[in-house]
Design a protein around this nucleic acid. Structure first.
Lengths: 223, 223
DNA sequence: CCAAAAGTGTTCTTACTACACCCATGT
DNA sequence: ACATGGGTGTAGTAAGAACACTTTTGG
């Protein structure tokens, strides 16, 4: 039962009979890694490469799980947190899984409010900036970050402020996310329905167009 | 082995040992539905609900497969193409799978060039408009569609034109897609790195920030 | 010359970026 | 006072929506 010897691997484990994939993952994270505070969980993709596990054919469904930076979950001795920019050698296809997870996170950070799962309950813009920079991999302007997220209604200011540091400086306002479930905050504006008629019917009366959205279905029962 | 009697179902079938999920799907589509001309194939998600199949526990990985409108694949007698707006009763969770497939297609149509897999090799803007309308479910302006896709470099005009119909009208230019593999044409402009320094490093030298992108890994081998 | 369909010119609007400037606190 | 970090004002810009107008064909 020894996986690729000398390599690290992502936490996870076999799916039980009568268990959902998502529940299975939560179970493994809680039991083996003592990780219970997951603010957001999303399925990524199922890997089916026949040679991905040298021990034989194993299908693996990868998930993205986000943990707030205000928790710092202690993990067992055989487990550690790794900076994504400085990963050790990884078993199986786990390196590429991490890459696709990061891609997904990057995308979702830009058009949804997922950051609610990464930030503390209340936070300063400076803190949020660090979180975005860590995920996106490039610098982010605190000024514009604040304004964009306020404008979108993603975050709102609380009354609280945080004491300024020993070096002085204006005390920072504390903000919070307005919602704690996934919301699309930047629906692709493009190709949206015309202003006048949001749900306008699209069959132009006399048009002989044969184009229609369709799907192949098979009926294996009586017909 | 009878699935939900009296219901239609999506084409597909069991995964063989030593077979990739994607290959398996192509095989089932080719054999059972005689569908070979797939221009784009993408994994959607794996459904694990314990009760999704009344016969017992079955995991299913759904795919989105696009077929060009210039093919009209003949399908066996037990199979038919259905307008997405007018689906029959479907077995299992297939209805909800179709919904998420459509969501995915809608999104990808707006920020990628996937439409290359739906359109004929060359086409008029009117044809493309019908395709977009069918997928998006709302009307689309031919004028703006053309300009946006040209500006993005997604399509380009050929020299050819198509004869005008018997009612007159200016003959339409034929266009083609500039690429026939998936490309992101509208990268989310938001939170992009600052102009001056596209790949600027983000550690602000003396910053003691502890925030870093990290991932939990478990080492079950010797360490 | 008129109708029909295709395509272009032009303006409007929205939403983000850039950057100068002002604010509040500690030493 | 002045350094430091937080926040606002304001102009610049990119890209799509809307709509009037021109172009090219058939009757």
């Amino acid at each position: 039962m020894a996986p690729s010897a000398g390599h690290w691997s992502l936490p996870g484990g076999p799916l039980e009979e009568s268990e959902l994939l998502g529940s299975s993952l939560s179970r493994h994270l809680a039991h083996k890694v003592e990780l219970k505070e997951i603010g957001f969980l999303e399925q990524l993709e199922t890997r089916s490469d026949v040679t991905r596990d040298p021990r034989g054919r194993v299908l693996a469904t990868a998930y993205l799980a986000l943990v707030s930076s205000e928790y710092d979950p202690t993990v067992p001795g055989d487990t550690k947190w790794c900076d994504v920019e400085d990963l050790p050698d990884l078993a199986f296809d786990h390196r590429s899984i991490i890459e696709s997870a990061r891609e997904r996170l990057r995308a979702k950070l830009t058009y949804t409010n997922v950051a609610f799962a990464l930030a503390p309950k209340t936070f300063t813009v400076a803190t949020l900036k660090s979180i975005y920079e860590a995920c996106l991999g490039h610098s982010v302007s605190a000024t514009n970050l604040q304004r964009v997220l306020i404008r979108r209604g993603t975050i709102e200011s609380t009354n609280g402020v945080v004491a300024s540091s020993s070096l002085g400086g204006r005390p920072a306002t504390l903000y919070r996310f307005t919602h704690h479930h996934l919301r699309v905050t930047d629906p692709f504006a493009i190709f949206r329905p015309p202003h006048g008629a949001p749900s306008e019917n699209l069959a132009p009366s006399g048009s002989p167009s044969r184009v229609a959205p369709s799907t192949a279905v098979r009926g294996r029962a009586h017909r």
